[in-house]
């Protein structure tokens, strides 16, 4: 194993040197893999190996980017929850919303519909208003962090679309929520800027 790693380091150094010498090559240097038995025509073999390595690296980068984008999307779509009869942002919700802010800053084309929900207690119609107020609380949070208000639309389903169809404290806590529906720029979600 040690030998392999050593060889890998040398190979990289060699590739870098090679790359530096060949200005005409548009390919960025990349670490070749598994060079157990270099053939006689070192130069052409090296070119093939370089391009394979570059493609693999590119695929890896792409996969990582996609994973990061998927993570970002999951974070954007993560629900936040509220206390009974309240529309104030809880500390737990704030943590989630701060992560969303970072993603939204890096993804200016993303637009979101904020859908407020309530538990089943209280008045049906008052709960429609309460759900909307929860969605507005989230929008205001985003605006305070410098995001443009018109990237967000708010609406409410009141108590009519419960996440958990039971009548107990646990279900009610799950049902008092704002959901995040991406309405534009879903293919332009960027992970947070570092």
């Amino acid at each position: 194993m040690h030998y392999r790693r050593l060889f890998f380091v040398f190979a990289v150094l060699g590739a870098v040197t090679l790359g530096a010498c060949r200005r005409e090559s548009p390919e960025p240097p990349a670490p070749p893999q598994e060079q157990e038995d270099p053939g006689p025509d070192l130069d052409s073999l090296q070119r093939v190996q370089d391009s394979i390595a570059a493609a693999e690296a590119e695929a890896r980068r792409q996969a990582e980017l996609e994973r990061a984008q998927a993570d970002a999307r999951a974070t954007l779509e993560q629900m936040v929850f509220f206390d009974y009869d309240e529309s104030a942002i809880t500390p737990q919700a704030e943590q989630v919303l701060r992560q969303k802010v970072e993603i939204l800053e890096a993804s200016p084309n993303v637009r979101i519909r904020l859908e407020g929900h309530t538990d089943e207690r209280g008045s049906v119609e008052y709960n429609q208003a309460l759900g909307n107020r929860r969605a507005e609380s989230v929008r205001e949070f985003f605006v305070q962090f410098g995001l443009s208000a018109d990237r967000f639309q708010t609406t409410s389903y009141g108590e009519e679309r419960p996440l958990v169809n039971r009548s107990d404290e646990e279900a009610w806590a799950q049902n008092r929520r704002v959901e995040f529906v991406i309405t534009a720029g879903a293919d332009q979600i960027n992970p947070p800027n570092m």
């Binding site: 909307n132 969605a135 507005e136 708010t154």
Partner: peptide, 9 residues
């Protein structure tokens, strides 16, 4: 009817 949403309803 009621229009709810935005900063003023």
């Amino acid at each position: 009817f009621a229009v709810v949403g935005g900063r003023r309803s």
